[in-house]
């Protein structure tokens, strides 16, 4: 028993050393058409967020993720719903009525969720343009989006954002893109 415990510890210790890649997946979108991971990569960083309609923190995360999607043109935000099949219509209705800038996919049997150890939503992953996972986070609280933005800016090769670019009351800067080009 003790040897097995040591072996597992070694395995768990060594495993994070290697860059973890998001597994190839093919999931249906709103219209039932399959979308592959490969079609989402190559443009820039990707945020993959597993959510459910019953999950309030997941819905609280959406405006913040939408803000990032609007701010960074190269960023793709993918929302993967893990709702049961009978609850999918409600999840679809919610997202369509909100008109967020997301790619919406569905994983009702949690096949990808299980591969990625997604147990409790929201669970987010930040990928680089090759599909390697650079950051993952479970949950969403006020300020979590700043961590995502830090990793996105690292991946885009941007410096820390100057403070004067934020509006009053920390409102997001809706047209910051041209400033980022100057920073590079």
């Amino acid at each position: 028993m003790r040897k097995i415990f040591i072996l597992l510890t070694l395995l768990i210790t060594f495993l994070p050393v290697f860059a973890e890649k998001m597994p190839d997946f093919k999931l249906p979108d709103m219209s039932g058409t399959d979308v592959e991971l490969a079609s989402l990569l190559g443009k820039g960083p990707v945020i993959i967020d597993f959510w459910a309609d019953y999950c309030k923190p997941c819905k609280e995360a959406m405006p913040a993720l939408n803000m990032l999607a609007e701010k960074y043109e190269e960023l793709t935000v993918v929302m993967i719903s893990i709702d049961a099949p009978k609850a999918q219509s409600r999840a679809k209705s919610y997202l369509r009525s909100k008109q967020f800038k997301f790619v919406t996919l569905f994983d009702p049997d949690k096949k990808l969720a299980k591969q990625m150890n997604v147990v409790n939503p929201p669970h987010s992953f930040v990928l680089n343009s090759e599909g390697e996972i650079v950051y993952s986070h479970v949950g969403f609280e006020a300020g979590t989006e700043k961590e995502y933005e830090t990793h996105i800016r690292d991946l885009l090769g941007l410096k820390d954002e100057p403070k004067h670019q934020h509006g009053e009351n920390n409102e997001h800067c809706g047209n910051c893109g041209h400033h980022e080009e100057e920073e590079k």
């Binding site: 999950c55 309030k56 997941c58 147990v119 409790n120 929201p122 479970v138 949950g139 969403f140 609280e141």
Partner: peptide
């Protein structure tokens, strides 16, 4: 039952 706290639902 279903609880959502500390930013996570379970």
């Amino acid at each position: 039952g279903k609880v959502c706290r500390n930013g996570v639902c379970k």
